[in-house]
């Protein structure tokens, strides 16, 4: 194992997060099932979270002036993102349920009544 591989640093996490992000993009574009699109969004949010936590760990988590507290802003944001993801999933699923009740399908191609 080369040193570059053995020493896991910020890069590795960022590249992994980029991969997750791209997978999320592709999922959003390819799925015709509305819930599939939602899953793509979840992937993208997770990619962002990995970035936040990794930056926090490698760049930011230093003791703030000896006060005994660490700066953990990245982790806090990640928590907020998780909460928002939960909220978003709840609302989105409620909307999908309504959609399903109206169109008896979950294929987003069918929901074209909003066109101008």
């Amino acid at each position: 194992m080369t040193p570059m591989l053995a020493q896991v640093g910020l890069h590795h996490y960022l590249i992994l997060a980029a991969m997750l992000f791209v997978c999320g993009l592709a999922t959003m574009m390819l799925k015709r099932n509305a819930i599939g699109i939602l899953m793509g969004v979840e992937l993208i949010l997770n990619a962002a979270n990995v970035n936040l936590v990794a930056f926090n760990r490698f760049r930011f988590a230093v003791d703030a002036g000896g006060t005994g507290g660490l700066r953990l802003d990245g982790q806090v944001f990640a928590i907020f993102v998780i909460i928002l993801a939960a909220a978003e999933a709840a609302v989105a699923l409620a909307i999908f349920l309504s959609f399903y009740n109206n169109f008896t399908t979950i294929d987003v191609e069918r929901g074209t009544q909003l066109k101008g």
């Binding site: 996490y13 979840e42 936590v53 926090n56 760990r57 988590a61 990640a78 928590i79 998780i82 939960a86």
Partner: peptide, 15 residues
């Protein structure tokens, strides 16, 4: 691995 154990737990439990 990123020393964010609480977050890991939240990820598992909530997500």
């Amino acid at each position: 691995l990123l020393d964010a154990e609480f977050l890991a737990a939240v990820q598992l439990v909530v997500y």
